[in-house]
Design a protein around this nucleic acid. Sequence first.
DNA 1: ACGGATTTGTTCGTATGTATA
DNA 2: CTATACATACGAACAAATCCG
Lengths: 239, 239
Amino acid sequence: MKSHYQKPRYLIVIEQIREKINNGELEPGEQLPSETALAKALGVSRNTLREALRILEEENIVIRKHGIGTFVNRVPVFQGGIEELFSITELIEREGKIPGTEILFTGYVEPHRDDVEELELEEDEQVFLVKRVRTADEVPLVYCIDKVPDSILHKRYKLREESIFNSLRDAGIVINHAESKINTIAYHDEISKIMNCDQHTPLLVLRQVHFDELNRPVLYSINYFRSDQITFNVLRKRI
Amino acid sequence: MKSHYQKPRYLIVIEQIREKINNGELEPGEQLPSETALAKALGVSRNTLREALRILEEENIVIRKHGIGTFVNRVPVFQGGIEELFSITELIEREGKIPGTEILFTGYVEPHRDDVEELELEEDEQVFLVKRVRTADEVPLVYCIDKVPDSILHKRYKLREESIFNSLRDAGIVINHAESKINTIAYHDEISKIMNCDQHTPLLVLRQVHFDELNRPVLYSINYFRSDQITFNVLRKRI
DNA sequence: ACGGATTTGTTCGTATGTATA
DNA sequence: CTATACATACGAACAAATCCG
């Protein structure tokens, strides 16, 4: 019954600044008032304002220049890059399309060598395997192979949802991040046929180990995307 | 002649904590002393320590949990992912290999439609075009097409270095970030031959618009990687 | 179930350093 | 050189989350 606590002020400040940008009060490239002035105007301390600005800078909404000022970033920034972890369901919905699923297999199987390593499996531990084709507006987009260690699932686990992410969350497993490898293959006898691809359409392959908050590997997935249906975007930063 | 300025304390604190992790004083998964205690031990204020911890958390070196504590991250995490912008030269050197270059073409040409859009070219503005094959230990790794707007180059510009990044830097242009699209093609008559690829080896295609600190597009590049020679890694985070 | 102790999160005030015009 | 702007740093207080007796 903890009802709602007050939202931190720096989050409110972030919203206020975003709003100023969205409604045109602050235009792209325009300089913000100085920190001292803006803090006073928003009724917060300079520290709180700086916390907000730091986050806005991380998100590429503003740019800060030492000794000069803070500016609204020109570019609206590339949304939904690959570095942001989302489920296939989310990916499809973001494109404004309707996700569909055709389940090809579910059940417990012996793991492969890779599975044992990536998922840090115990000896003789099985994996729960799901093979599916995911569609966007009825068009095949990606062939998904998902493997979850036996040990972290209740035996009565079943795939009730479209999204494995949601399904795992309902089972008390929250995915925090993933280590992904992007590659490509020209043609795969089985998969290319299922995906209705000819020899001229390679498959983009995403191999991912997903981890929960405790850094335990909880899901190993291999996704074969039709390369004519998708492109991965990345915002790369110089460090 | 203001000589050398003092290194900020939070950077020193970061080094100290990294050192404790590297020399085993702090082990993976281990909990750090409380912020109050650690700040006292390191002789800085809690705020300064927190600034250091925030950066270490961004870098996935530590994990902070509200009400519990701060911990050394278990996984050393995937270094050098694609979200970190580096030049091909750096990429090859990181793999411990020796970069080589075969220049196929350099000169000023009329831009394509894409170039005009991506590089925000003026009417009738030409681009400086470079086509090269980059090798790692003599093996062809990637076919590079790089285009730079005429307007940002001195006419006497020449490609003296292996790395276009370095070459541009010498010309006063510092690349800050890039928007990249990853895709793949099965076979390309010209490029696949040059790269010595058969029909079973698709090419991974990286199309990138590079920006300087002022968010001006300064370099448009298309890289065709031999997919049997490279995999792109990404650390994806749930947000 | 409750309360207190511990730990990180947020916020303010203030002072000083560094960069730029 | 000076004024302005952002960067760093300290101290203090309270909030929120978690843990444990």
